[in-house]
Amino acid sequence: MEYSPPLQQGILIKRYKRFLTDVRLADDSIITIHCPNTGSMKNCLFEGNRVWFSTSDNPKRKYPNTFELMENDQGQLIGINTGNANALAEEAINNNIIKELQGYDTLKREVKYGDENSRIDILLSSQSGAKCYIEVKSCTLLEQTGGYFPDAVTTRGQKHLRELMAMVQQGHRAVLLFVVQHSGISTVKAASHIDQQYADLLHEAINMGVEVLAYKVAMSTKGVNIETSCKFISMS
């Protein structure tokens, strides 16, 4: 996924009202850009550090610029735009990057399913009738040397785990795919210290047959793409 037009650079002043971020440009002017991240963004915001943002040509947008990348104090890049995770996953599947998800004939996005009024991020199917339900999650929380999900209590994430378990019970394949948008993360595990219920549900889902995959995004100011798998550490 290439950035076109190229990203612009600034310095983070602050994020507020969840969706707004103030950025200082090289000429010392200040602009407000859209923050496409509804999460807590724990350990992802570093005031005074460099950020990069994209620009939309949609004249209807009140804030034409979108927060894409953040640099932390160690010089590591963090993908702020969680909306990219699904597109990156689709691109990687279509390009056969995710070896565990090869061999299907069709890919659909945002398909209604389950008993809790959900939409699956990606549904793979084959002519034989086999189906694979894939829930995509963006992982950006780095603590010490490991990555964690979620970064805040997530009742929505808990619902998605229940839906995946239900698909396994119906005889389908179900996958939870962590898209790691942080250059400093090399392993992923459930953040039981943040959301114990989610961690317990994930442990239950794994025991029931839900597969968990983690793939890391290669990030630069020119573009982002899923490149390599990384280790998911399950609860013992």
Rank of each mutant, 00 (worst) to 15 (best):
P64N: 11
M165I: 09
Q144Y: 08
E68S: 03
A89D: 10
R61N: 06
E90T: 15
I120H: 07
D27R: 06
Q196V: 11
M70D: 03
S236A: 11
I11V: 13
L25A: 08
V217E: 05
K17L: 12
V180H: 01
N94Y: 01
Y215A: 08
Q8A: 07
I30D: 03
A166N: 13
P59V: 02
A199G: 05
D73A: 15
S126L: 01
T38I: 11
V136P: 01
L69S: 08
L124N: 07
S138T: 11
L45N: 03
R162L: 15
C44F: 03
R162N: 13
S128V: 04
N225T: 12
V111N: 03
M167D: 01
I226W: 03
I78S: 09
K108C: 08
K222H: 10
V179E: 04
N207H: 09
L7W: 02
F178P: 00
L25S: 04
V224H: 08
L123F: 08
W52Y: 14
L161V: 13
Q158N: 14
K222S: 14
Q76R: 15
I31F: 05
Q74C: 11
S192Q: 12
G75E: 10
V188C: 07
D200H: 09
V179C: 10
D28C: 06
V168C: 09
P5I: 07
T38R: 11
D57E: 12
L45D: 06
S192K: 12
G48F: 05
N43M: 10
Y148P: 00
T155R: 14
V180K: 07
V212T: 10
L177F: 04
L123I: 06
S192A: 14
A166H: 11
L12F: 02
R18M: 11
T55F: 00
Q76G: 10
E204P: 00
S128M: 00
K42M: 11
K108G: 01
L164V: 08
Q9N: 09
R173F: 00
P59C: 04
S229N: 10
G171K: 06
I98Y: 11
C44M: 15
T187R: 07
S186V: 02
I30R: 10
A130S: 14
Q8V: 00
R15T: 15
E116R: 15
M165D: 00
E71G: 05
G209H: 08
E100M: 05
E135G: 07
